[in-house]
């Protein structure tokens, strides 16, 4: 029997998709050699992409809106920063601790978040991030408060790979983490579990009526998403060797939402494409107009919404589905169905 096409990629044959995907990841990896001077930027992109991927898991697949996802990024960043500062643990272990702490808090707060409607969720997620940010501010003895966490020295990974100033080790670490977590996420959303999430996203009432335990599913994915965001935060701390209160800030939560909308939701590559677009635009625009670059991002967003193609990814993949449709005159071209 034919495989079930994913609703977002129904226009592409599996073979084309595979070629595109492998090419994409090879290109991203070869950036180490192609753009050796921009590795710090690439590292930031990879971390933002991971953060956006984590938001996509709840927003794109389970329909949970959040304006406080920075809560978990921040928790992860402080956990890894503190672990390195006080215990000089291996960076990989520090990031694992980030995942654990963020996942634990994600699990605990999921019960608050999952009550109520979208608006309630927006408010509660935001409130959780604000609370954590303020707690980090108050706990100066631990976090350094508004001065940030000073004196984080990160030992070499496995005692062998030291973090260099150019960001080579940093990017390789972030890139490989992103790739691994992306592959796990892709597995997850194609599983029966992932499919039940989509039924909840589309209609929670009906999902329950066909036997899906809605709350349990949402708690699970929210916890996983928090864990992912925690890892992004952990990577941020170990690769920049510094943590400040801005990891909890509202603008982090808002930016990652923007990144995901830019790239497209419910489509794991959306977060990655959005992160690349966002960071490159930020880099270019802030070079031109340091004060007003948000203006141009805003303008782009408006243009994107008006044009209606919400997904930059579809600009890349659509030509391929056209190409394929050309060979098979009867093939439906629904590559852009969102």
């Amino acid at each position: 029997m034919p495989p079930i096409p994913s609703p977002t990629l129904s226009g592409h044959s599996p073979r084309w998709r595979l070629v595109l995907e492998v090419a994409f990841w090879l290109l991203a990896f070869s950036a180490i050699f192609l753009m050796p001077r921009r590795l710090l930027l690439l590292n930031e992109i990879a971390i933002l992409a991971l953060f956006a991927l984590s938001l996509d898991l709840i927003l794109g697949y389970a329909g949970i809106v959040s304006l406080g996802h920075a809560a978990f990024l921040g928790l992860g960043a402080y956990t890894a920063g503190l672990a390195c500062k006080h215990f000089a643990v291996d960076p990989l272990l520090a990031v694992a601790a980030s995942a654990f702490v963020a996942g634990l808090v994600g699990f605990a707060t999921s019960f608050l978040v999952l009550r109520g409607t979208d608006l309630t969720r927006l408010m509660v997620t935001m409130a959780v991030a604000l609370l954590l940010g303020e707690a980090a501010n108050k706990m100066q003895w631990l976090t350094g408060g508004s001065d940030g966490l000073q004196g984080v020295t990160v030992p070499p990974i496995a005692g062998a790979f030291d973090f260099d100033l150019r960001g080579r080790t940093a990017y390789v670490l972030s890139f490989l983490t992103l790739l691994a977590l992306f592959l796990i996420a892709r597995r997850l959303v194609a599983s029966p579990f992932g499919m039940t999430l989509r039924t909840i996203r589309d209609n929670p009432l009906r999902a329950a009526a066909i036997g899906v335990p809605v709350t349990r599913r949402l708690v699970t994915i929210y916890t996983i998403s928090a864990l992912y965001a925690g890892i992004a935060g952990g990577l941020l701390a170990v690769t920049t060797q510094f943590v400040s209160l801005d990891v909890f800030e509202f603008s982090r939560s808002a930016d990652v939402m923007l990144v995901l909308i830019l790239g497209g939701t419910g489509y794991l590559y959306g977060g990655i494409i959005g992160a690349v677009a966002f960071k490159v635009l930020q880099d270019v625009l802030s070079g031109l107009t340091p004060q007003y670059w948000h203006f141009w991002i805003g303008l782009l967003l408006v243009a994107l919404m008006v044009v209606g193609r919400q997904r930059i990814g579809s600009w890349i993949t659509r030509p391929f589905s056209r190409l394929r449709a050309f060979g098979q005159p009867n093939a439906p071209d629904n590559g852009g169905v969102s």
């Binding site: 495989p3 597995r187 599983s191 579990f193 899906v212």
Partner: peptide, 20 residues
């Protein structure tokens, strides 16, 4: 498929392939 998966008690499986 989701309704069937839930009835078979495999709706919570995270690493098997739904379509396969």
């Amino acid at each position: 498929g989701v309704a069937v998966a839930q009835r078979l008690g495999i709706g919570g499986r995270m690493f098997s392939h739904f379509a396969a």
